[in-house]
């Protein structure tokens, strides 16, 4: 099969790395090739954190611009910034809650209107699923589970080569035991937000 190239973007502290791992673990569970490319270090001090998950034959841990079949955006402006990674048929799943960067809060720049940002994304890709993952995570019991809400929404788009049960298993295997239940609730709320 052709590889499924996924690009994940967000802000330091939003849990992009855990989401990447869950997707990679799920691929491993069904015996498919999986490569997860992470970014550590400097990028974590409030900066943009980007990671890559490739499922299938591909072995390289990097994507070029225009190669992402899936874009998982944890923050609306970062989703738009990562539009360069997408092609005409990319499936984009994006959170709608802004994390305003300091360049904006200090008055040096203006945070763009979320709706018009999402319109720009929608016009350039195959499908956009936009949801308030922060709110859903809070309702599921933990704002920190926003990452898993987005993974649930992605699962519901039927883009992944494995189903939701496999992802639930991957969540059980990846997150700390004390947080499994909350994360599963968050995951399911992401699934139902799309279906």
């Amino acid at each position: 099969m052709k590889s499924l190239n996924m690009f994940i973007t967000g802000v330091g502290g939003q849990g992009t790395l855990l989401a990447s791992r869950v997707l990679g673990e799920a691929a491993l569970m069904v015996g498919m090739g999986a490569v997860v490319g992470e970014v550590h270090g400097m990028a974590q001090r409030g900066g943009v954190v980007e990671s890559v998950v490739v499922i299938g034959e591909r072995k390289g841990p990097v994507l070029s611009e225009g190669e992402a079949d899936v874009l998982l955006g944890f923050e609306p402006m970062e989703t738009l910034r990562a539009l360069r990674m997408c092609h005409r048929n990319t499936i984009v799943v994006s959170n709608l809650t802004p994390v305003v960067p300091f360049t904006v809060t200090s008055g040096k720049a203006e945070y763009p209107d979320v709706d018009s940002m999402m319109e720009k994304v929608r016009g350039a890709v195959g499908r956009l699923v936009a949801l308030d993952a922060d709110r859903l995570a809070k309702e599921a019991g933990s704002p920190r589970a926003m990452n898993v809400v987005l993974v649930g929404a992605l699962a519901a788009t039927n883009t992944l080569p494995f189903d939701a049960e496999i992802l639930e298993e991957a969540i059980r295997a990846t997150v700390k035991p004390a947080f499994v239940e909350i994360n599963l609730r968050a995951f399911r709320s992401g699934v139902s937000a799309v279906t």
Binding site: V48, C86, T103
Partner: peptide
């Protein structure tokens, strides 16, 4: 590809 370059930096 479509590039959006005029976003506030982070």
């Amino acid at each position: 590809t479509v590039r959006v370059d005029d976003l506030p930096p982070r």
